[in-house]
Each structure stands twice: as structure tokens, then as C-alpha cells.
């Protein structure tokens, strides 16, 4: 699948997919990488070392710092794949240096799929 480079880099890993938007400020714990938003479909899941897949970000602009914090604390996802990356997530992944691609039809991806993300080229592929 071909999308657009938001933040360069390459990564391979297992997908963790959310069908609903994800907010990082108040939504993800920067110390543990656990999703803590009450009632969110990923509540209790850990983003660490995953290929984190969600349609788009939501919520406070402080979310950028949380993404940076995840990386600094060693609990960041290996890469992020979005339908549409808005500024909060874009700023966060660029500062943190996390590979990120947008413009991907994430409906085709399920949690547990093995993915290969080449954010330099803006591509996401399944590893068979």
C-alpha cells in the first residue's frame, strides 16, 4: 500500500489497530505506553514496539509531547500508520523520530498482522 511520508524511517513489526481516533494526551501513558482512555477500544493495550495503526489523532496539542515522551522512555511504537495524520501526531512523530506514513486504507489491516513500514518511500506492506 502506498501512502505519504510523514516522518522517515523503516520498521517491521506486529500491528495494533484502532478503528477509532486516538488521543495521546490523557489517552496514552508516556511512562508505560499503555492506552488508558476510559472506554477506548485499545484501553489496557500497550503500544510499545508495535506498528500502531489508527485513523487519525484527536484531542489536545500536548499529545505531541506525549509521543516524544513515549520514545524517550523506550515505550514508543516502532512506527505509526494513519489514514490521515493531523498536526498533533505529525509534530510528535517528527520530534521523536518515529517512522510514520499516512494516506493508507487501514480497513485492510487487523491487529496481529505482520507489517513492513518503509516511511522513506511512504509504503506499508504485509509480511507473508
Amino acid at each position: 500500500m502506498k501512502g505519504k511520508t510523514i516522518s522517515p524511517g523503516k520498521a517491521e513489526g506486529v500491528a495494533l489497530v484502532s478503528r477509532e481516533p486516538l488521543g495521546f494526551y490523557g489517552g496514552v501513558d508516556a511512562k508505560t505506553g499503555k492506552v488508558m482512555e476510559e472506554g477506548h477500544e485499545l484501553q489496557g493495550e500497550c503500544v510499545r514496539d508495535k506498528i500502531l495503526v489508527f485513523p487519525k489523532g484527536k484531542g489536545s496539542t500536548v499529545g505531541s509531547y506525549i509521543i516524544y515522551g513515549l520514545k524517550k522512555n523506550g515505550v514508543a511504537p516502532k512506527a505509526i500508520v494513519n489514514e490521515e495524520t493531523e498536526t498533533i501526531v505529525a509534530t510528535g512523530v517528527i520530534l521523536a523520530g518515529i517512522p510514520c506514513v499516512d494516506g493508507i486504507d487501514i480497513g485492510k489491516i487487523k491487529t496481529g498482522d505482520k507489517l513492513k513500514v518503509d516511511a522513506d518511500e511512504g509504503t506499508v506492506d504485509f509480511e507473508r
Binding site: Y25, A30, V62, Y65, I66, Y68, G69
Partner: peptide
Amino acid sequence: SIGFPGLEF
């Protein structure tokens, strides 16, 4: 608002 991640950044 920004906590330790923001402070450290």
C-alpha cells in the same frame, strides 16, 4: 499540561 515529557523536551 505537558508533564515530564514536555519538560524534558
